[in-house]
Each structure stands twice: as structure tokens, then as C-alpha cells.
Design a binder for these strands. Structure first.
Length: 197
DNA sequence: GTAGTGATTTTCT
DNA sequence: GAAAATCACTACA
């Protein structure tokens, strides 16, 4: 069936409990009207980082200059620099002063193929271009300047293109040393763009 | 196919 | 000074 017209997500989508947003965000499109042209991708993998009691959450030790965007109300972009060379994109959730966010870990390319291609090593198949949080930010060219953007009224936002996953898998998070027992990772079971099975 | 490791710099202790 | 929500490359099977 052809998909009806896409709908941009509003504030009320983001200001709900993080785990509810996590399930709903799989299959949504991330859109960025960059200076080089429009980029978009279907989100297939996220991880939740929820509150000051989650040891793996950046806000676990209170508010700092780096994580202050996590304390905003839902619907902002939290982008941070990691391992000396990569950026990671998060979508802030819940209400103001409750630090929580979803790390976007994987997506399938939709629009802006030619622009993204120049930013990814030549050998990789297109299905793997956005399979990983660092790769996604590199392909979209998201940096510190985009940290704190409001997803409800700027060039960076989510929209529903009516392409929901057939099935969602829930597992433990990847790449962290604390909080490993929590089932906070969600992905589209059948997508080729999931960072790791 | 899997396993191990170097790159590179911000951030907080 | 050490760790970090990662990736790509190399070696080997």
C-alpha cells in the first residue's frame, strides 16, 4: 500500500515516558534540511537513557555543561562528542528537569543519498551507512552546532511516514560499562541497518 | 566469518 | 590523568 502523506511529530510525542517513545520512534523518519540539501532516514535502532538513577545516563551525576540539554523538556536534540572523533545524536524525552533521552543508533537512508555517500568509506553497502550512532552523525554532518536544536521548529525534526516495523526486538544496551542489565535497546528486528544483532 | 587494537580529544575526577 | 553511549582496519580461520 502506498503511504499517506507524512506527519511531523509535535511536542506531545516527545514529552511522554521514554520507553513509550522508544517503541514509537522505530520506523519514524529523521529529517535534516542541511545547507547541502535535504537528508532523511528511517530510524531502526535506539537506546534509552533515563534519569539520574540510570548509571549509564550522562545525567547520573547531576547537571553539567555537557548534559544540560537532557534536562530540557522532550523534543530537543542532544549531540555530544565522544572518543575524540565521533558525535552521537539523542532525542530528549519526558518533562523539564527530568533528564532522559534516546540515543539514535541506526537508520536506513531515504533522501540525500549523494550527499551522504561522500562522507562514508567507499566499500560499505548503502544499508550500513547509518548503522551506528557515530556513523549516522557523520553522514548527516551533525556536530556541536546542532546540539540543543528544537525538533518542533527547526531544520531538524522527526516525521511519521507510515513505515512501522513488522516486529521490534528489545535487548540490553551496547558499549557501556554500567547499567548493563537494563533492557533499554530497541530495534526493528528485520532491518539490515541495525548496528549489531 | 570473528577478534583485537589504534585513533584522538573532551570531560570530569 | 583516565575514561568515554565508537569505528575501521588488520590479522587470522
Amino acid at each position: 500500500m502506498p503511504s499517506p502523506k507524512p506527519k511531523k511529530m509535535h511536542r506531545s510525542f516527545y514529552t511522554r515516558p521514554t520507553l513509550e517513545v522508544a517503541e514509537d520512534i522505530i520506523g519514524m523518519s529523521l529529517v535534516y534540511k542541511s545547507p547541502q540539501g535535504k537528508l532523511s532516514a528511517r530510524i531502526v535502532e535506539v537506546e534509552a537513557y533515563i534519569g539520574e538513577n540510570d548509571p549509564a545516563c550522562h545525567a547520573a551525576r547531576g547537571k553539567t555543561k555537557r548534559n544540560e540539554v537532557m534536562f530540557h523538556k522532550g523534543g530537543y536534540a542532544y549531540i555530544y562528542f565522544i572518543y575524540g572523533m565521533y558525535y552521537c545524536l539523542n532525542v530528549v524525552t519526558e518533562k523539564a528537569d527530568f533528564p532522559a533521552a534516546l540515543l539514535i543508533r541506526g537508520a536506513e537512508t531515504q533522501e540525500g543519498i549523494e550527499i551522504m555517500q561522500k562522507r562514508i568509506p567507499a566499500k560499505q553497502p548503502q544499508s550500513r551507512w547509518l548503522a551506528g550512532p557515530g556513523k549516522l552523525c557523520r553522514a548527516f554532518n551533525l556536530k556541536r552546532e546542532q546540539n540543543g536544536l528544537d525538533l518542533t521548529n527547526t531544520e531538524l525534526y522527526l516525521e511519521n511516514r507510515n513505515e512501522p516495523p513488522e516486529k521490534i526486538t528489545v535487548t540490553t544496551r551496547i558499549g557501556i560499562s554500567k547499567g548493563r542489565s537494563l533492557l533499554y535497546r530497541f530495534y526493528d528486528t528485520h532491518s539490515p541497518a541495525v548496528s549489531r544483532k
